[in-house]
């Protein structure tokens, strides 16, 4: 095998979606093309409040490098973010802030709860701590751990990508989705 072949074999290219292929044309559904584009360019909004945030910094840095999965661009404005990553303990006093950040995000939006605290309150089973962010906003992916290792965060992101890639373009207009948001008091 020549050197050129080895290099070309190691280049990963996203697989094309299912479709009909012929000479000079390729036909597939819009859903799949949009999903493909979206899933490989997720802009995360980090909402880091404690040690999970430190693990996330490691995930973003050169050693684990989330950029490999198309998420190198963190969006610090919720209006331009696709994925809200809540990492750390959310006290009840902070809950309205998390909810407001979620409301400021444009559809389609996804939420990842990283670590035991964001997922369930964790060890902080106490009067002042929100017992999981899914009490105020819908969550797509939970990453367990206290704190989770960067590998787990990457796994969580890949699961979000799976959801994003397979999501139907009509999902956000469906009555089920409206009902889901309504159950959180979101219009």
């Amino acid at each position: 095998m020549s050197e050129k072949d080895i290099i070309e074999r190691n280049i990963n290219i996203t697989k094309a979606p299912e479709g009909i292929e012929g000479a000079g044309f390729f036909a597939t559904s819009l859903d799949q093309v949009v999903g493909l584009a979206r899933k490989n360019s997720i802009w995360p909004l980090p909402f880091a409040t404690s040690c999970c945030g430190i693990e996330f910094m490691a995930t973003m840095a050169s050693h684990y490098d989330l950029a490999r999965f198309g998420s190198e661009r963190l969006s610090f404005s919720p209006r331009q973010a696709d994925l809200l990553m809540v990492m750390g303990t959310i006290s009840k006093k902070l809950a309205p802030v998390v909810k407001q950040v979620y409301l400021q995000m444009a559809e389609p939006r996804w939420v990842l709860a990283m670590g035991a605290c964001a997922s369930s309150g964790g060890i902080f089973d106490t009067y002042s701590v929100l017992q999981g962010i899914d009490r105020i906003i819908p969550v797509d992916v939970y990453v367990p751990g206290c704190p989770p290792r960067p590998e787990q965060v990457i796994d969580g992101i890949l699961r979000v990508q799976e959801l994003v890639g397979k999501e139907s373009l009509r999902r956000r207009n469906s009555p089920e989705y409206t009902e889901l948001l309504a159950s959180y008091g979101i219009e």
Partner: peptide, 19 residues
Amino acid sequence: LNMEDQPYFPLRKQYQLED
């Protein structure tokens, strides 16, 4: 320190520490 609409005073002993 607590949220504005906390309906009780949490360090009174008649309330449990847990949520």
